[in-house]
Design a protein around this nucleic acid. Structure first.
Length: 419
RNA sequence: GGAGAGAUGGCCGAGCGGUUGAAGGCGGCGGUCUUGAAAACCGUUGUGCCGAAAGGCACCGGGGGUUCGAAUCCCUCUCUCUCCGCCA
């Protein structure tokens, strides 16, 4: 959520930001609703103030035994007007919250303007390990051949876009999680294991509601959703911690499974486990003082990237363009890993700075050094998506005989060096 | 799942129909004292909204109701605790 004050005082900056994102939101309607709501609030506050006075006079009238009916009548009139105002305010509130939640975060000025995914800016590209032209089978073929993935049974049991990992691949999955958690821990992130189911309000605070609502799994008959990312759990957890300036940045990491309907991606990545409804991810979250969030963003990018370096997987980093940056984010880097079977780079991590956008929705504040309170900045990033890391290993470490070598950094974690 | 008890400011805890946004304590901040620190003492210390300001309004788990007036009474939901049952 953006600051309403900015919306009222400098609506053009809000309009420009929305235009840069190629979105369309009824700013004028929102400003009108806010203005009218404020006016009504002023009137209602005055009425309530008057009513309080009348109420105090009432007890005096009671002891005097005169003028009681008179005061009652005045209060009744006040109540009638208050009810009318409350009804009108409720309607305006609905318009306000609907529109306000949809206004995206201000983009960082260095985010390239662009309408499509391809307009991202590549800011780093490492060397490819596999020579071009090596005969590499896609992960879903090699996985089934070697008996370490079962897509068919998963589809029968749960439907399309589910996967069963077996044997050494399943073990490698576990090893990867531990590897990532240990490495992130060295970089200063505190380990948290949060619930996988969470209430709707929490999703609203971090912005998945209303933006990604259609992508969420909801538990029938309960106010609970399966988390689409541990970001939701970790950022919301910060609200329960005492945040003092000297303790910031507060860095947390969490391993969770994530659940997404993938509603907006019909036909995309249908084969394999590139895009499945349930996937594992190690997530980083940092709660930062506003002034230090850009540096923190770079650190998180570097922390996530370092995992790929240690795994010796080829990757590049893209700064997403304006239209491709999610509403909550002011600036997002994607880390993309090279997949030889596709001859291209694919997203394996997304690192975003949400500035004060989520903090304002949550009213998440820290105690400043001088004893005041101020909104924090929240940042999040994957380090890394575990399933996609498995894919990258299965392809980049594939040998000519169809076996798969295990990255040296993982061998101590899984206890074997070849699948 | 059954029976009971509870939910108050950063924390603990009083209040149980009328200047109560809320006693008291702890913690925090400022000061006195001290070479410094501790102790003691004094002062100060919730959040949100509207407003240029003065000021006003709202908030005692959420929602609804009774009343001229609710933190206080009633209903309901959620959560916590105790006992019983069941159970990975």
């Amino acid at each position: 959520m953006i600051d309403i004050k900015i919306l009222l005082n400098d609506p053009d900056s809000v309009r420009a930001n929305i235009r840069k994102r190629f979105k369309n939101i009824d700013i004028d309607g929102l400003i009108d609703a806010v203005t009218r709501a404020n006016k009504l609030k002023a009137e209602a506050d005055d009425l309530r103030s008057g009513k309080k006075k009348l109420s105090r006079e009432f007890s005096q009238a009671m002891s005097r035994k005169t003028g009681i009916e008179d005061i009652k009548k005045k209060i009744e009139e006040t109540d009638a007007r208050l009810t009318a105002i409350e009804n009108e305010s409720a309607e305006l509130e609905k318009i306000k919250s609907d529109l306000l939640l949809r206004i995206p975060n201000f983009l960082s000025s260095d985010v390239p303007e662009g309408k499509t995914e391809d307009e991202k800016k590549i800011v780093f590209e490492g060397p490819a390990l596999k020579e071009p032209g090596s005969p590499v089978k896609p992960h879903y073929e090699i996985g089934e051949e070697r008996g370490i993935i079962d897509f068919k049974a998963a589809a029968e049991m749960s439907g399309s876009r589910f996967v069963i990992l077996k044997n050494k691949l399943s073990a490698l999955n576990r090893a990867l999680i531990t590897f990532m958690m240990n490495e992130n821990g060295k970089n200063g992130y505190e380990e948290v294991y949060p619930p996988f189911l969470i209430k709707r309000d929490m999703l609203k605070y971090t912005g998945q509601v209303p933006d990604k609502e259609e992508d969420l799994y909801k538990i029938e008959g309960e106010d609970l959703y399966l988390i689409p990312t541990a970001e939701v759990s970790l950022v919301n957890y910060a609200a329960f911690l005492e945040l003092k300036e000297e303790d910031l940045p507060k860095r947390m990491m969490g391993f969770t499974s994530c659940f997404r309907k993938e509603a907006g991606s019909y036909g995309k990545d249908i084969r394999g486990m590139m895009r499945v409804h349930q996937f594992d991810k190690v997530e980083l979250v940092s709660i930062s003082v506003p002034g230090k969030s850009p540096a923190e963003h770079e650190k998180m990018l570097s922390d996530a990237s370092s995992l790929l370096t240690k795994l010796e997987l080829p990757y590049r980093v893209a700064l997403l363009c304006s239209a491709d940056t999610v509403n909550t984010s002011s600036k997002t880097y994607d880390i993309e890993v090279y997949l030889p079977s596709q001859g291209t780079y694919r997203e394996i991590s997304s690192v975003s700075s949400c500035t004060d956008y989520q903090a304002r929705r949550m009213n998440l504040k820290y105690r400043t050094a001088d004893g005041g309170k101020a909104l924090v900045h929240t940042l999040n990033g994957s380090a890394l998506a575990v399933g996609r890391t498995l894919i990258a290993i299965m392809e980049n470490y594939q040998n000519l005989d169809g076996s798969i070598s295990v990255p040296a950094a993982l061998v101590p974690y899984c206890g074997f060096d070849r699948i």
